[in-house]
Design a protein around this nucleic acid. Structure first.
Lengths: 238, 238
DNA sequence: AGATTGATGACAAAATTATGACATTTTTCT
DNA sequence: AGAAAAATGTCATAATTTTGTCATCAATCT
């Protein structure tokens, strides 16, 4: 499966690079432009905030360590502002410090890449985040058997009957519906539904699977959520 | 910049170094071990072939210029043999000759590094190849007779009917399907399906063979799993 | 026939998944 | 803001499956 971003007909995505060191900005710009992104550079948090509102980048690469307002501070500010809180952000950190990692993700970063990183890895992460985001933007009704999923009205029905789902179960079901007839390991499910770098006990997935099954256990729809021993779970109407 | 990937939790990858010059082998070994690879060394093509089958390295570094069978020749041979053709290979060449480069890649090398190279570059290339390989690993639908094996949905069907397999039988069948019409000793099967350095009673293989046969005993598919007395087992639809 | 090698059924231990309960955290409502 | 309700992540425990070995029987070879 080729990445959607390699499609020349597709408008290029814009990345905002926020880093105080010109050398690093240059490096990132080179890498990202080679990967067909449009790159914007700013050197501090204030300019970053302005650029995000002004230029509406598709994603922001934010350096953790910056003089003045730190990346973390900016991250929090951005996530608080309704105008900017939907812009995906990838944090760049010098070291994989556990503390920083957790703090950053808790504050809403979509992913986290520690320096030094390989260009290939960075680009892959960016694309992964963008893919996740753009997938969520697809609002089309999905039907599977007697189950009907309507992302627009945020309504799930089985044989006409409305079903109530918690936020997580809703996302989980949406994910499954978008990728039917395919096994996913718990790891993958975690990545896609919860987001990268979320550390949860693998067993927690089981619990959510159970909750989802319970919720859609009407007309036997819970059978669509299938356990594949030793591999993970699969959604299939057969 | 420091080394990029240092994940102690990952099982170490094994690199086979094929080069006739001891000095170069030593150098490579040092570099690779520093990067947490397990290194195997051999000095010629014949030994290389044996080592690949025997030790199953995750990747091979192959010198272009060698007395006797050249690297290119070995590369072609490896890519022709179904048993070895999936092992990723990086060619090492003395100079970046355009011609050689093209020939090597055309013959199936996964990447190409020209000497002299920086240790960091070499390690980066190796990791890049390993990542690429593991990403698009074996998710191809395989059909044999009325049997259909779909790794994507993790589904095995015979004449349309779904078959249930335990994890081990599933892997065993997958292995057989990828290497049809070829006898494997129990030792080899153990290595391929259970993984190297796993000690199990040889008779256990028999039991799993039987379980696999029983599971696919629909439309006579169990006959595909053939006993080769004194040698091992073979999967063949004839 | 005697010796080897493979096939099978039975088991108990090990591994994996399902579930119900609970403490917290987040959201919603008043 | 404060109370009430909903949602979440973890556990401990139960329910299922899977797996490695054995003991025994069958087939093949010398």
């Amino acid at each position: 499966m080729k990445s959607v971003f390699e499609d020349a007909s597709m408008p290029k995505k814009t990345v905002l690079v926020v880093d105080d060191e010109p050398a690093i900005r240059d490096m990132l710009t080179m890498v990202l432009e080679a990967a067909s992104f449009v790159v914007l550079e700013v050197e501090n948090a204030r300019l970053a905030h302005a650029a995000i509102i002004d230029r509406r980048p598709d994603i922001v690469l934010l350096d953790w360590m910056m003089p003045g307002t730190t990346g973390l501070e900016l991250l929090r500010r951005l996530k608080r502002d309704p105008l900017t809180k939907n812009v995906p952000i990838i944090m760049l950190t010098a070291k994989a410090e556990e503390g920083g990692k957790v703090a950053g993700l808790d504050s809403g970063a979509d992913d986290y890449v520690s320096k030094p990183f390989s260009p290939r890895e960075l680009v892959a992460r960016i694309k992964a985040v963008l893919r996740r985001i753009s997938e969520d933007e697809v609002k089309e009704i999905i039907e599977a058997g007697s189950l009907r999923f309507d992302p627009i009205s945020h309504l799930v029905t089985i044989a006409g009957e409305e079903i109530t789902l918690g936020p997580t179960e809703y996302r989980l079901l949406h994910f499954f519906l978008k990728h039917q007839n395919r096994v996913f390991s718990r790891d993958q499910i975690l990545d896609f539904v919860w987001g990268a770098n979320v550390y949860l006990d693998e067993r927690t997935i089981d619990v959510h699977i159970r909750r989802l099954r319970k919720s859609i256990a009407v007309a036997g729809c819970d059978q669509y959520v299938q356990t594949v021993r030793g591999a993970g779970y699969r959604f299939s109407i057969r």
